[in-house]
Amino acid sequence: MNQRAPIEEQIDLPFVESLRISFQSLKIRFGRSIITTAGITLGIAFLVSVWTNNEIELALQESGRSSEITGLDEAAEQGISTKDIWLIIMSLIVCVVGIANSMLMAVTERFREIGTMKCLGALDGFVVRLFLLESGFQGFAGALIGALIGLLGAVVLGLKNYGLDLFFYFPLLPAQPENGPFQLGVLLLILLGCILGMILAIIGSSFPAWRAAKLPPAEAMRTEV
């Protein structure tokens, strides 16, 4: 009997094992995962549509065709208007708050699960890693879908306002016009949106997961949502 032997140290699990557990969890909780991911998708879709719209306006102004296009008013010809800046900041805030909220809820309702895993011998770090993986994947997938939806929205709006001219001057790549602000281009915007979604999702979930993992299991399991 090794029962009187000194208590050994818990081992670290291979990364593949964490990956397997987190994917399994995402798959079985698919419905719930979709709702959480939808929160991210919405935030990023709004952000990307506002940004893309702005890029399109700038690109068309640069092209010198803005005066011929009915959709742009005089004020817009001066560059980014205060209204646009306001909209961009607002979309960023909505995105941050929306994603943080989705992830917080998704983790908080799983405090009991975290406590149980610790009862079975999970290390704090392992629990956090699981949530990091899950939320990173959700964040990326949600943000990519959101960015594409946002892009589509901006293109539809652009077509309505500027007609087919939109495609001649579509700001796909980064550009530095002679007398105007630097333009990121739509491709970079999408990439930025995806990274932002992923980072926000990871921060939003790993903070509460870390807090729950630090709690003694009895306390984590007591937590009512």
Binding site: E9, Q10, I11, S25, E113, C119, L120, L123, P217, M221
Partner: peptide, 23 residues
């Protein structure tokens, strides 16, 4: 790490509300 190993190897827990992982 020792506490985690202790919970893992030395003790088995059974709870009133089962505490199974639903996933």
């Amino acid at each position: 790490r020792q506490i985690a190993a202790f919970r893992c190897h030395r003790v088995g827990y059974i709870f009133q509300s089962y505490n199974l992982l639903n996933v």
